[in-house]
Nucleic acid binder design. Structure first.
Length: 269
DNA sequence: TTCCAGGCGTATC
DNA sequence: GATACGCATGGA
């Protein structure tokens, strides 16, 4: 990790990282673009403002300690992983080569398990701006992202302020199952992928898609492959016979390049 | 007004 | 196991 302390800030030199492509690509919903090349957000209720400078290979982590960089943000931004190597592997496939080139600064954030799970429960049959709105109201209400324990007394009715619609009762069920110990997210993290899928899907409102998103974005299971409406379009258009061999084991990484490519590039669907 | 959005529960066959 | 339909909300 190539960084130096600059007053109250940390300056970090980092390749394969674009703030727009990573923080605003539908994997995390709490980052707000506050100025050009600047985002404010939080992880585990530790707030951060991050901006990039020069040609955007130098990042300024505002009001951050060296300790937080090493213990929190390096892990969250997955800085120990070589995304150039991911892109080299995936670029054996022609379409993936284009997707990687289109948005080469995507990284998969190592998010909190509960936050990812609950965020993607909220995401179902919903659009990204509205998902952000619901999560913003949730965090505003609690002064940060609430834990399952924080939410233990919530009911479908008490959550009406979220305007989450039919998804509120799913959150209540997730909170109940985690609160009772019926589901232990730390234990899920240690399960093989199929058992983890099956366990998460015992929660009401968690089906195949939400489980895959939780596993990819909350548990860093790179083999998880969420298929939403956009990725279904990708599969129909380019991969009617399934994903190419070069994605094996990192299907989720490939998925994020493809998702962003088809959703934002304006390419013919 | 109708359609759609990082889907899923339920009913029915 | 597959298919059809309803579901809350709000922007296009």
């Amino acid at each position: 990790m190539d960084y130096k302390v600059d007053g109250n800030d940390i300056l970090l030199r980092q390749k394969d990282l674009s703030l727009d492509e990573t923080l605003d690509c539908g994997q995390a919903f709490r980052w707000e673009k506050t100025a050009e090349n600047t985002y404010s957000g939080a992880f585990l209720n530790r707030k951060l403002t991050i901006s990039c400078e020069n040609d955007c290979d130098i990042f300024r982590l505002h009001d951050t300690s060296e300790e937080d960089l090493i213990n929190v943000w390096a892990d969250y931004f997955d800085l120990d992983t070589d995304y150039s190597e991911y892109k080299r592997r995936l670029s054996e496939d022609e379409t993936l080569a284009k997707a990687c080139k289109y948005a080469g600064g995507i990284r998969i954030l190592r998010q909190d398990k509960w936050e990812a799970l609950s965020s993607f429960i909220i995401s179902q049959n919903n659009n990204i701006p509205r998902i952000k709105g619901i999560i913003s109201r949730l965090c505003e209400h609690y002064g940060g992202y609430p834990s399952p324990d924080d939410m233990k007394d919530e009911t479908e009715e008490s959550l009406a302020f979220l305007r989450a619609g039919f998804r509120a009762k799913y959150l209540v069920d997730a909170v109940a199952k985690i609160g009772s110990g019926e589901i232990d997210l730390e234990a899920v993290a240690k399960m093989d992928i199929d058992e983890a899928r099956k366990t998460l899907q015992t929660i009401k409102g968690v089906g195949p898609k939400v489980a895959e998103c939780a596993l990819l974005f909350g548990f860093y299971r790179t083999e998880a492959f969420p298929k939403d409406v956009w990725v279904k379009r990708v599969m129909a258009k380019w991969y009617p016979d399934g994903l190419p061999e070069c994605t094996k084991g990192i299907e989720g990484i490939a998925q994020q390049y493809l998702f962003h490519y088809i959703r934002t590039s304006g390419i013919e669907v």
